[in-house]
Design a protein around this nucleic acid. Structure first.
Lengths: 341, 341
DNA sequence: AATTTTTCTGCAACCGTTTGCCAAAAATTG
DNA sequence: CAATTTTTGGCAAACGGTTGCAGAAAAATT
């Protein structure tokens, strides 16, 4: 038997331990485990067996140091609390695990500064990042993208690969739905001004309103949270519109709750359309008519694009923007426009 | 001016670059940035300024290699999709960021094997872990805890520090509430058998039933997901009970949806109590009576305990279990028991 | 002014891998 | 069977920091 050099008391085994126990050089052990073709099959098997016995696990830190690859992807969300991101996170997690990557979740708290500083502080700790709803300015985002492989979700900026959930064209569908129900005065409940999606949705609504020849206005901005729904509901009511489209479901649900409190009937007095179809949109009261977005898929696709680009940086040249369609899911929060005197 | 040794073209600056640019040795630069007292103030300031200019960021990998500390904490959840964990994640994220740690989120997909293997694969990549609702057996969990600093949430195993949300005693409160409404036949809608909390809740219910002299039964087990609520609802209906307490809100909401579909009135025909008070419990239809758990706080406390133990391993000896109280939040899903013939 | 203390700073080893380069061994070829 | 090509496997230099040790410089003491 070869001289078995044992690891110290309970210290996790290192590659050196494996090599010693297998009677080969460290370099050989390294290659056997990560670059199998460079080593004779019999040797490799022997090493693999020893590694298993010693319960050896590579030290990701040490590996990252030389290879420069951490096999970790950062997922930056502006608010872990927002159910919209749950599905994103689920999608990325799924796809990353399948590819053997680890997910680093970072909450940027709706702050562009925090987002920027986190990206820089951690830049050596991940190979690339998924920016879900980045609050960065176009300038900064582009600059970042040139330093670090990045894929943005719901954010189109030249030079930055992205996944775009096409809510704007869904908005046109939603307008059609509302108009066909007799609504002629529709208000958009605006989300945060720093949100890129917010602008796109408003513009789409404006365009659709023109096409249908109805009035469109906006109220807000509001924070995309349930609590902000109260203020939003009041604003909508004040506007006198018969229907509203909210920046997202969270806001829409908040509006719903407030209207119930104030005794306003939905959809009797007011119809409401949300965006995204998050967790909860189907069981709130009344269930929310909303633009269903393939959120989880967006997460998966973002990861695919990012990983493809990591494997082969040459891809960088090609256009890398995926557009995912949305569709209107009609539930019970929209109905015929009330008869006005 | 000192000779400015510039970093290569756009390669991020290393400590060596900083040292060279400041005209000191690498070791001095290192100390200036991480152990300020070991270096004269003027030297330190100079170095700090240069570091800032060069946009220097320590390489966490390299630091981890020597120090053995990654300043990363893993948070293991059994299902990122479950809103219960949203709040946990939010709590841990918050507290970890405050302490300068990074959060590594891992989804174990309700599988004890995946949980175990992930912990081992990644063990060198984090300093400690928060196990939110671990599916591990007591044996394995204890073994793990002896190798790696760990704090469990909602899981009490000797030798493993933990944060326990005291839902069981809340269940007694809930039973009191139901009994006072005239219910005499109460069924528990069971969660997954591998869930430690599930057992505790059932036992508490059983105990409370004895105290009040009412009948208690259980149906299930069911997966703690909304979809499983349909089957659960049918089972509850079959049981003939007038009220049920569900393992968690997700299941309760699922039941609510199914009952609505079947035309069963809540709370007219059946009263329902959930557990946890997750996102959605307040705006479902009807709003759910539930045991409000300080979930986010649990995440924060878990991090505090873990970090304290990392700072001073001596603490290990002391008892380290925090118990957080729950309280009953009465909404509209519970009401007087229906009159039976 | 000489000696002792204290404070700074640099040298160099080390953390656990990966990888370029080269030599030994094995396989192939003439 | 010698010469050549192809595999294998080892040496040693990174990767980017941290830290014990010790010498130099500065400050304090005598």
């Amino acid at each position: 038997m070869e001289p078995l050099v044992d690891a110290g008391p309970d210290r996790p085994a290192t590659l050196a331990d494996v090599a010693a126990a297998s009677g080969v050089a460290i370099s050989t052990a390294s290659r056997a485990l990560s670059n199998p073709t460079r080593v004779r099959a019999s040797t490799r098997e022997k090493i693999e067996e020893v590694a298993r016995e010693l319960n050896y696990v590579v030290n990701a830190q040490a590996r990252a140091l030389t290879s420069g690859k951490t096999r970790t992807i950062a997922v930056m969300v502006s608010d872990v609390t927002n159910p919209f991101y749950f599905d994103i996170i689920r999608g990325t997690q799924q796809q990353l695990k399948a590819a053997g990557y680890t997910q680093l979740l970072v909450d940027t708290e709706e702050s562009d500064e925090l987002e920027d500083s986190m990206m820089h502080k951690l830049r050596r700790s991940f190979d690339g990042a998924i920016l879900a709803a980045s609050r960065l300015t176009d300038r900064k985002l582009a600059a970042l993208a040139s330093e670090i492989p990045v894929v943005a979700i719901n954010r189109q900026t030249s030079g930055v690969p992205s996944v775009f959930i096409d809510t704007p064209s869904g908005i046109e569908q939603a307008m059609g739905h509302l108009v066909s129900l007799g609504h002629r005065d529709i208000v958009y409940v605006s989300g945060p001004v720093t949100s890129w999606s917010n602008e796109g949705r408003w513009r789409a609504l404006l365009r659709a309103a023109k096409v249908h020849g109805v009035t469109a206005r906006r109220v807000g901005p509001f924070s995309p949270k349930k609590v902000a729904g109260a203020a939003a509901a009041d604003a909508v009511l004040n506007s006198g519109a018969t229907a509203c489209i909210a920046f997202n479901d969270l806001l829409a649900i908040g509006i719903l709750m407030r209207l119930r409190e104030r005794g306003v009937s939905v959809p009797g007095d007011l119809s409401i359309v949300g965006c995204d179809d998050i967790f909860g949109a189907d069981f709130c009261n009344p269930p929310l008519t909303t633009l269903t977005a393939p959120i989880e898929q967006a997460g998966r696709v973002a990861v695919s694009i990012l990983l493809a680009r990591l494997d082969d940086p040459a891809i960088s040249g090609t256009r890398q923007t995926a557009t995912l369609p949305t569709h209107l899911t009609v539930r019970a929060s929209t109905g015929p426009a009330p008869i006005r005197k």
